[in-house]
Design a binder for these strands. Sequence first.
DNA 1: CATGAATGAGTATTCATTCAT
DNA 2: CATGAATGAATACTCATTCAT
Lengths: 199, 199, 199, 199
Amino acid sequence: MAEISPRKQPRQARARATCEAVKQAAARILVTGGPPALNTNAIAETAGVSVGTLYQYYPSKQAILAELVRDMRAGMLADIERGRAQAKGHDLRTAVRLMVGASLHHHRRDALGAEAMERAEAELPMDAETDALKRRIIALVAELLAGYGIADPELAARDLSAMTRGMAQAAVAAGETDFDALTERIARGAIGYLETGCN
Amino acid sequence: MAEISPRKQPRQARARATCEAVKQAAARILVTGGPPALNTNAIAETAGVSVGTLYQYYPSKQAILAELVRDMRAGMLADIERGRAQAKGHDLRTAVRLMVGASLHHHRRDALGAEAMERAEAELPMDAETDALKRRIIALVAELLAGYGIADPELAARDLSAMTRGMAQAAVAAGETDFDALTERIARGAIGYLETGCN
Amino acid sequence: MAEISPRKQPRQARARATCEAVKQAAARILVTGGPPALNTNAIAETAGVSVGTLYQYYPSKQAILAELVRDMRAGMLADIERGRAQAKGHDLRTAVRLMVGASLHHHRRDALGAEAMERAEAELPMDAETDALKRRIIALVAELLAGYGIADPELAARDLSAMTRGMAQAAVAAGETDFDALTERIARGAIGYLETGCN
Amino acid sequence: MAEISPRKQPRQARARATCEAVKQAAARILVTGGPPALNTNAIAETAGVSVGTLYQYYPSKQAILAELVRDMRAGMLADIERGRAQAKGHDLRTAVRLMVGASLHHHRRDALGAEAMERAEAELPMDAETDALKRRIIALVAELLAGYGIADPELAARDLSAMTRGMAQAAVAAGETDFDALTERIARGAIGYLETGCN
DNA sequence: CATGAATGAGTATTCATTCAT
DNA sequence: CATGAATGAATACTCATTCAT
């Protein structure tokens, strides 16, 4: 059983910098070489530290990945929360557009990184904290949808998240960079999904 | 650079049976243990042959996986072709429902296997033949959509495929088994995407 | 939890030879360098095989050591059984001398090896089979002692075994090589232990 | 070659306390986890100091262990000296009983610690000072035996020490706690060894 | 002096692939 | 053709030791 929670809290500034460097390095490798290229020696070298140092802060390779994914999900949750705040008071169609846009914020920042991270997540043994973040995200969306009278808002939230994720993934893979256009297309699917359901 | 095309064409029946057994074994391991569990020794043992024999027919581990994915895509293409034949003459909404249903045929046969295979595909260096199959699938869908006057049918085909894949993946991960209901939900999204676009 | 039982049965003659070579190599390293020198690379190199080969037959370093110890205990049990057969019909003093002599047979064959092995045993997580062998050895001695009317023969058997082991260890460490003399001295202690108890 | 003598003489009280804490920590770890668990990080943490501080007082891990063993032997020497003082004027049998009892004093204080320490000693490169202590112990016993007209008192002293050590080890391993009974049994063996020799 | 961050050689183990039988 | 023994580079992780702060 691989330990997954971080090993020790970095107390000095240097230590915190090291931690960050390790995560950045792991993320970069993941983007450029995919999961098979992600090995601890490569991470350490890319981060400019020794393997030993890496293991001072993370008890295992999995733990690094887990924290990376956790960070990504936490950022996504924040994006979604901001999105919901913006969406408040608007009609369903506008609200959906805003939420889809919010969901793609991390793609705007770093499309390849975002994709790599979501892929990596699938191969990871489920981390409790990350799982909680994911549930919270779905719950937020479901609440919003419930406010518009959508039936089975939980299921709808899951479907719309999946739709967004799937379309974004394909778009990034195809090299798209116009996220406004992508947002618009996803929103069309989402709105269709929601409104057709009311018929 | 690992060789990826099969090493020799199995002419005799026994040889074909061996090939099949190897692929089946690889597929089963992929489903039950994921990519990390997929190693050549395990494949050989599960298939009931020796590693040596395995290497008679496949030049590398990647080649086995590549053929597995190729088979999956070929099957999917056949499903889609059958779907299109059925869809001919129906209105857009019905056609979409039929196509989505066709796309989920392999999920109906073996949901976990289908998912495992699509995941595996992402980690594989792009195989020319598989890529051609994927393009053909998109092209088929695009042709169909063009017949209904959809603008930018290529892009729409890609978006709908991605939408389908994303929602199916999430549904399987959540343990859903009612593929009719799933088909209906995906179709709602797809139709919304297509019709909203006409506004 | 390290696996300790051997991994696969060697089918071909070559394989059996490899197995034996690995054990011999481990034993030699243990004698010359002690536990800290016993690492799998060294074992493989000394045995003239690759690490990979070593791991075909033993699932872990511990497993090699465990089998070595098991072999030693099995040999010892055989020695003790022969000793008891010889001792039958003799008086207590003679019987004790014969049994002590039998216990030192493996020291006569390879004093340093015998000592190294007994040391190693202490650091090993208890292997069920080895434990059974040790119990059997004690039981055999206890039976013999019971036949002479010794009180609490189990305890006496354990004490005499420990006495023998302790004195032999010190003698080997001091470089003694006259095992007849050593046998005689141990026997004096043993007989004293047994007869004083009758007072 | 690792330095083994302590690095600096602790003059201040705080320093002496640190040294003591380090040794105590090492001893405790050795008892609870055995040699493999004994690493400098664990020692430092258990002692409540930093690794850096540990290395202020001991030049290497081996040095800590060496001092621990030296302390143990010094304590044993003191026990034996007290035993001999008590034994003066008594007959051989009584003297032997007293000496065996004295040898087991450190077992009475901390049976597991005593055993762990003696085990550790075997794995250590011979330290000159410790070796001198061991010789002195044997010499003391030999002198005592010589006073009773025992032939080859050096050899007898070594044999009796080994006998004591062997039996004590087995008894502790078996979970015995009645050291008076154990003393009595060892003494029987010892007396038998010595008196049978006079025949 | 004390701290704890950093180092990197060393260790056990795996697994794709080859090749003698 | 089939077998499975052998290979060895690669990988995750540990731990004694050093040194900047």
